[in-house]
Design a protein around this nucleic acid. Sequence first.
DNA 1: TTAGTTACTCATAAAATTATTAGTTATTGA
DNA 2: TCAATAACTAATAATTTTATGAGTAACTAA
Lengths: 129, 129
Amino acid sequence: MYEHKMENDFRSPLEKGLAAFDGKWKTRIICCLSNNGSLRYTALKKELDGITDAVLALTLKELTDYSIISRTQFNEIPVRVEYDLTKKGIEALPILKDICQWTQKYNPKSEQVRCGCGRPDCKFDLKTN
Amino acid sequence: MYEHKMENDFRSPLEKGLAAFDGKWKTRIICCLSNNGSLRYTALKKELDGITDAVLALTLKELTDYSIISRTQFNEIPVRVEYDLTKKGIEALPILKDICQWTQKYNPKSEQVRCGCGRPDCKFDLKTN
DNA sequence: TTAGTTACTCATAAAATTATTAGTTATTGA
DNA sequence: TCAATAACTAATAATTTTATGAGTAACTAA
């Protein structure tokens, strides 16, 4: 662990793009930020049920490297760090929404489009307008 | 190996939908079928550089279970089996195309939208019309 | 009789991802 | 002096994914 891939050898923009959503936590983080706006490290950790520091820090780094989220550090004491969706991240939301709808069209069981942040009470449907 | 997940515990339609594109080979298979139409097992194997039987068979099963592709068996000798994109699979193509475009917008290096089938000569741009 | 074909399966190994537990730095407040 | 806080990092372990190398059935053609 603790080296992450990034400029792997994705053979196409498709694979490269999908890498931004892959793994257990990336979409959950994206949805949390989309739900809440700016969040700091500890707040994110509280939202993401069961994530550990090692994994959260790594995943935030990956998302930052993919330019999906931004990291802003305020040198207070103790430090404050805030994470936000970037423009690129915000522009991913309609795509994620399309994936939700596509899934649900062929899977009528789960009636409601819900986000991937993992909270059972999350009602966010990835609307971007 | 040789048990695949499927009704995992995806917490949302988003995660469930993304599962259909995840792993090393799924999008490559989708793109091959989109490029070529119907393909049999051996033909797919030839297209997908470096895949082994164990992994190809497993991945085809996963995609079949997700209803992205269909399997049709002709009881000739030796057997003939053909794989095709389903309606659901075809309807995924515009989403994949959006992911390509989104990636490229923020990554002007790779000028050309190419599919994920892995062939360097593949010019397919995931147009669906 | 033997080799060839297709579409697989099986056991196992290697590699990658995710989890666990425990630090660390710099500072404040009690 | 001691505990507390925020945002991490490091070493290692467990789990999951992917790869390797072989084998199978049911024929056919040589």
